[in-house]
Protein backbone atom coordinates (compact mmCIF):
# COMPACT_ATOMS: atom_id res chain seq x y z
CA UNK A 1 0.00 0.00 0.00
CA UNK A 2 2.80 2.41 0.99
CA UNK A 3 4.73 1.45 -2.14
CA UNK A 4 1.67 2.00 -4.31
CA UNK A 5 1.18 5.43 -2.72
CA UNK A 6 4.82 6.34 -3.35
CA UNK A 7 4.45 5.26 -6.97
CA UNK A 8 1.34 7.39 -7.30
CA UNK A 9 3.08 10.44 -5.86
CA UNK A 10 6.14 9.81 -8.04
CA UNK A 11 3.89 9.78 -11.07
CA UNK A 12 2.49 13.18 -10.05
CA UNK A 13 6.04 14.60 -9.86
CA UNK A 14 6.87 13.04 -13.23
CA UNK A 15 3.83 14.65 -14.87
CA UNK A 16 4.58 17.94 -13.16
CA UNK A 17 8.11 17.79 -14.58
CA UNK A 18 6.94 17.01 -18.11
CA UNK A 19 4.43 19.88 -18.00
CA UNK A 20 7.09 22.18 -16.57
CA UNK A 21 9.70 21.31 -19.22
CA UNK A 22 7.19 21.65 -22.05
CA UNK A 23 5.53 24.82 -20.79
CA UNK A 24 8.46 27.22 -20.57
CA UNK A 25 9.81 29.18 -23.51
CA UNK A 26 12.86 26.97 -23.39
CA UNK A 27 10.92 24.21 -25.16
CA UNK A 28 10.71 26.31 -28.32
CA UNK A 29 14.51 26.56 -28.50
CA UNK A 30 14.81 22.86 -27.71
CA UNK A 31 12.30 21.91 -30.39
CA UNK A 32 14.14 24.04 -32.96
CA UNK A 33 17.38 22.33 -32.00
CA UNK A 34 15.78 18.92 -32.13
CA UNK A 35 14.51 19.37 -35.69
CA UNK A 36 17.94 20.31 -37.07
CA UNK A 37 18.47 16.77 -38.51
CA UNK A 38 15.09 17.02 -40.24
CA UNK A 39 15.90 20.46 -41.60
CA UNK A 40 19.27 19.25 -42.84
CA UNK A 41 17.83 16.14 -44.51
CA UNK A 42 15.05 18.22 -46.02
CA UNK A 43 17.50 20.82 -47.30
CA UNK A 44 19.74 18.22 -48.90
CA UNK A 45 16.71 16.60 -50.52
CA UNK A 46 15.31 19.91 -51.79
CA UNK A 47 18.72 20.91 -53.15
CA UNK A 48 18.83 17.53 -54.90
CA UNK A 49 22.32 16.74 -53.64
CA UNK A 50 23.39 13.68 -55.65
CA UNK A 51 25.44 12.12 -52.89
CA UNK A 52 22.70 12.38 -50.27
CA UNK A 53 21.87 8.86 -49.16
CA UNK A 54 21.90 6.69 -46.05
CA UNK A 55 25.70 6.75 -45.96
CA UNK A 56 25.80 10.55 -45.89
CA UNK A 57 23.01 10.44 -43.29
CA UNK A 58 25.27 8.38 -41.04
CA UNK A 59 28.25 10.67 -41.58
CA UNK A 60 26.27 13.80 -40.74
CA UNK A 61 24.29 12.46 -37.81
CA UNK A 62 27.28 11.75 -35.58
CA UNK A 63 28.77 15.26 -35.41
CA UNK A 64 25.44 17.02 -35.81
CA UNK A 65 23.00 14.97 -33.81
CA UNK A 66 25.10 12.98 -31.34
CA UNK A 67 27.71 15.58 -30.56
CA UNK A 68 25.58 18.72 -30.68
CA UNK A 69 21.82 18.24 -30.62
CA UNK A 70 21.69 15.34 -28.16
CA UNK A 71 24.16 16.88 -25.74
CA UNK A 72 22.59 20.32 -25.85
CA UNK A 73 19.00 19.14 -25.40
CA UNK A 74 19.90 16.76 -22.55
CA UNK A 75 22.14 19.31 -20.85
CA UNK A 76 19.60 22.13 -20.82
CA UNK A 77 16.71 19.95 -19.67
CA UNK A 78 18.55 17.80 -17.12
CA UNK A 79 20.20 20.75 -15.38
CA UNK A 80 16.83 22.50 -15.13
CA UNK A 81 15.17 19.67 -13.21
CA UNK A 82 16.37 20.53 -9.72
CA UNK A 83 18.52 23.62 -10.13
CA UNK A 84 15.79 25.74 -11.70
CA UNK A 85 13.33 24.79 -8.98
CA UNK A 86 15.94 25.92 -6.43
CA UNK A 87 16.57 29.17 -8.30
CA UNK A 88 12.83 29.77 -8.83
CA UNK A 89 12.09 29.06 -5.14
CA UNK A 90 9.47 26.43 -6.02
CA UNK A 91 11.37 23.47 -4.56
CA UNK A 92 9.95 23.96 -1.02
CA UNK A 93 6.51 23.02 -2.33
CA UNK A 94 7.86 19.57 -3.20
CA UNK A 95 10.16 19.21 -0.22
CA UNK A 96 7.31 19.86 2.23
CA UNK A 97 5.22 17.03 0.82
CA UNK A 98 5.33 13.46 2.21
CA UNK A 99 7.48 12.12 -0.60
CA UNK A 100 11.13 11.20 -0.10
CA UNK A 101 13.84 13.28 -1.71
CA UNK A 102 15.26 10.30 -3.66
CA UNK A 103 11.78 9.65 -5.09
CA UNK A 104 11.62 13.29 -6.22
CA UNK A 105 14.93 12.90 -8.06
CA UNK A 106 13.92 9.67 -9.79
CA UNK A 107 10.48 11.01 -10.73
CA UNK A 108 11.94 14.17 -12.21
CA UNK A 109 14.48 12.12 -14.13
CA UNK A 110 11.73 9.97 -15.62
CA UNK A 111 9.84 13.12 -16.58
CA UNK A 112 13.00 14.52 -18.17
CA UNK A 113 13.58 11.32 -20.14
CA UNK A 114 10.04 11.27 -21.46
CA UNK A 115 10.21 14.92 -22.49
CA UNK A 116 13.57 14.63 -24.22
CA UNK A 117 12.57 11.50 -26.12
CA UNK A 118 9.34 13.23 -27.24
CA UNK A 119 11.55 15.97 -28.69
CA UNK A 120 14.28 13.82 -30.23
CA UNK A 121 12.83 10.53 -31.50
CA UNK A 122 10.41 11.99 -34.07
CA UNK A 123 13.26 14.08 -35.44
CA UNK A 124 15.53 11.05 -35.90
CA UNK A 125 12.75 9.03 -37.52
CA UNK A 126 11.68 11.84 -39.83
CA UNK A 127 15.24 12.60 -40.95
CA UNK A 128 15.69 8.92 -41.74
CA UNK A 129 12.40 8.72 -43.66
CA UNK A 130 13.30 11.81 -45.73
CA UNK A 131 16.68 10.24 -46.54
CA UNK A 132 15.20 6.94 -47.65
CA UNK A 133 12.40 8.61 -49.60
CA UNK A 134 14.89 10.83 -51.43
CA UNK A 135 17.05 7.81 -52.23
CA UNK A 136 14.00 6.04 -53.62
CA UNK A 137 14.44 2.95 -51.43
CA UNK A 138 11.83 1.26 -49.23
CA UNK A 139 11.63 2.86 -45.80
CA UNK A 140 12.71 -0.32 -44.04
CA UNK A 141 15.77 -0.94 -46.18
CA UNK A 142 18.19 0.42 -43.65
CA UNK A 143 16.30 -0.44 -40.50
CA UNK A 144 19.62 -1.23 -38.83
CA UNK A 145 20.68 2.42 -39.23
CA UNK A 146 17.40 3.69 -37.82
CA UNK A 147 17.56 1.16 -35.02
CA UNK A 148 21.13 2.15 -34.18
CA UNK A 149 20.34 5.85 -34.00
CA UNK A 150 17.18 5.29 -31.99
CA UNK A 151 19.16 3.16 -29.56
CA UNK A 152 21.84 5.83 -29.08
CA UNK A 153 19.17 8.50 -28.74
CA UNK A 154 17.52 6.61 -25.88
CA UNK A 155 20.71 5.48 -24.17
CA UNK A 156 22.49 8.78 -24.76
CA UNK A 157 19.54 10.72 -23.30
CA UNK A 158 19.54 8.43 -20.28
CA UNK A 159 23.28 8.59 -19.65
CA UNK A 160 23.83 12.29 -20.36
CA UNK A 161 20.68 13.16 -18.42
CA UNK A 162 21.78 11.26 -15.34
CA UNK A 163 25.25 12.79 -15.51
CA UNK A 164 23.97 16.35 -15.91
CA UNK A 165 21.35 15.84 -13.21
CA UNK A 166 24.06 14.68 -10.80
CA UNK A 167 26.17 17.73 -11.63
CA UNK A 168 23.19 20.00 -11.08
CA UNK A 169 22.51 18.76 -7.55
CA UNK A 170 26.21 18.95 -6.74
CA UNK A 171 27.04 22.39 -8.10
CA UNK A 172 25.37 25.79 -8.01
CA UNK A 173 26.33 26.55 -11.62
CA UNK A 174 25.95 23.24 -13.42
CA UNK A 175 25.50 24.62 -16.91
CA UNK A 176 29.11 25.80 -17.26
CA UNK A 177 30.54 22.46 -16.11
CA UNK A 178 28.01 20.61 -18.24
CA UNK A 179 29.03 22.57 -21.33
CA UNK A 180 32.67 21.75 -20.69
CA UNK A 181 31.94 18.07 -20.30
CA UNK A 182 29.46 17.88 -23.13
CA UNK A 183 31.20 19.92 -25.77
CA UNK A 184 34.84 19.84 -24.75
CA UNK A 185 35.56 16.52 -23.05
CA UNK A 186 33.19 14.44 -25.18
CA UNK A 187 34.67 15.92 -28.39
CA UNK A 188 38.33 15.87 -27.47
CA UNK A 189 38.63 12.60 -25.59
CA UNK A 190 38.23 10.49 -28.72
CA UNK A 191 41.57 11.70 -30.04
CA UNK A 192 43.50 10.75 -26.92
CA UNK A 193 45.33 7.46 -27.39
CA UNK A 194 44.91 4.39 -25.24
CA UNK A 195 41.88 3.62 -23.15
CA UNK A 196 41.11 7.24 -22.26
CA UNK A 197 38.26 7.48 -24.82
CA UNK A 198 36.44 4.83 -22.76
CA UNK A 199 35.95 7.55 -20.13
CA UNK A 200 33.36 9.22 -22.33
CA UNK A 201 29.74 8.47 -23.07
CA UNK A 202 30.16 9.17 -26.80
CA UNK A 203 32.60 6.25 -27.05
CA UNK A 204 29.92 3.77 -26.05
CA UNK A 205 27.30 5.45 -28.24
CA UNK A 206 29.59 5.08 -31.26
CA UNK A 207 30.34 1.48 -30.28
CA UNK A 208 26.59 0.79 -30.38
CA UNK A 209 26.35 2.32 -33.83
CA UNK A 210 29.29 0.26 -35.04
CA UNK A 211 27.72 -2.90 -33.66
CA UNK A 212 24.21 -2.35 -35.06
CA UNK A 213 24.85 -0.83 -38.49
CA UNK A 214 25.87 -3.38 -41.11
CA UNK A 215 27.31 -1.17 -43.83
CA UNK A 216 28.60 2.37 -43.69
CA UNK A 217 31.31 4.74 -42.48
CA UNK A 218 30.38 4.24 -38.82
CA UNK A 219 31.44 0.58 -38.95
CA UNK A 220 35.06 1.73 -39.01
CA UNK A 221 34.97 3.15 -35.46
CA UNK A 222 37.94 1.73 -33.52
CA UNK A 223 36.44 -0.09 -30.54
CA UNK A 224 36.74 -3.47 -28.88
CA UNK A 225 33.42 -3.04 -27.03
CA UNK A 226 30.43 -4.82 -28.50
CA UNK A 227 27.10 -3.04 -28.93
CA UNK A 228 25.51 -5.10 -26.19
CA UNK A 229 28.29 -4.40 -23.72
CA UNK A 230 28.26 -0.70 -24.61
CA UNK A 231 24.53 -0.56 -23.99
CA UNK A 232 24.94 -2.29 -20.64
CA UNK A 233 27.71 0.12 -19.64
CA UNK A 234 25.55 3.11 -20.52
CA UNK A 235 22.66 1.72 -18.48
CA UNK A 236 25.02 1.16 -15.55
CA UNK A 237 26.42 4.67 -15.88
CA UNK A 238 22.91 6.10 -15.93
CA UNK A 239 21.97 4.20 -12.80
CA UNK A 240 25.21 5.14 -11.05
CA UNK A 241 24.85 8.86 -11.72
CA UNK A 242 21.18 8.75 -10.77
CA UNK A 243 21.93 7.01 -7.48
CA UNK A 244 24.69 9.54 -6.79
CA UNK A 245 22.25 12.38 -7.50
CA UNK A 246 19.71 10.81 -5.13
CA UNK A 247 22.31 10.51 -2.40
CA UNK A 248 23.56 14.09 -2.73
CA UNK A 249 20.02 15.48 -2.91
CA UNK A 250 19.01 13.55 0.20
CA UNK A 251 21.84 15.12 2.22
CA UNK A 252 21.58 18.63 0.77
CA UNK A 253 20.10 21.65 2.42
CA UNK A 254 18.36 24.20 0.20
CA UNK A 255 18.72 27.84 0.92
CA UNK A 256 16.26 29.87 -1.07
CA UNK A 257 17.31 32.91 -3.00
CA UNK A 258 16.20 36.10 -1.32
Amino acid sequence: MAFAQTLGKSWVVTLLTVRYLLSTRRVIAMALFAVVPVLLAGSLALARVRTFDILLFQVLMVPLFLQVVLIFVTLVNATALIREEIDDNTLPYLLTRPIGKPAIVVSKYVGYLGTVLILLIPSVVLAYVITEAYSGVPIGSDADVLGGFLAVTVLGSAAYGALFLFISVLLRKPLAVGLMIGFLWESVVGSIPGNVPKLSIIYYLRSILKGTIEIGPLTGFPTDVSAGLAAAILVLLSVAFLVAAMFVFQQNEFRQKA
Partner: peptide, 24 residues
Amino acid sequence: PEHNQVYGWMTATRFVETLLRLDG
Protein backbone atom coordinates in the same frame (compact mmCIF):
# COMPACT_ATOMS: atom_id res chain seq x y z
CA PRO B 1 6.88 30.34 2.29
CA GLU B 2 7.77 33.99 2.57
CA HIS B 3 8.78 34.49 -1.06
CA ASN B 4 6.19 35.08 -3.73
CA GLN B 5 7.23 32.41 -6.22
CA VAL B 6 4.77 29.76 -7.35
CA TYR B 7 4.44 27.62 -10.47
CA GLY B 8 3.28 30.57 -12.55
CA TRP B 9 2.18 28.48 -15.51
CA MET B 10 -0.33 26.57 -13.38
CA THR B 11 -3.81 27.70 -12.45
CA ALA B 12 -4.51 28.00 -8.73
CA THR B 13 -6.72 24.94 -8.92
CA ARG B 14 -4.06 22.85 -10.60
CA PHE B 15 -1.42 24.15 -8.15
CA VAL B 16 -3.34 23.15 -5.03
CA GLU B 17 -4.65 19.96 -6.60
CA THR B 18 -1.16 18.77 -7.63
CA LEU B 19 0.23 19.34 -4.16
CA LEU B 20 -2.75 17.50 -2.65
CA ARG B 21 -1.98 14.56 -4.94
CA LEU B 22 1.51 14.60 -3.45
CA ASP B 23 -0.13 14.37 -0.03
CA GLY B 24 -1.55 11.06 -1.20
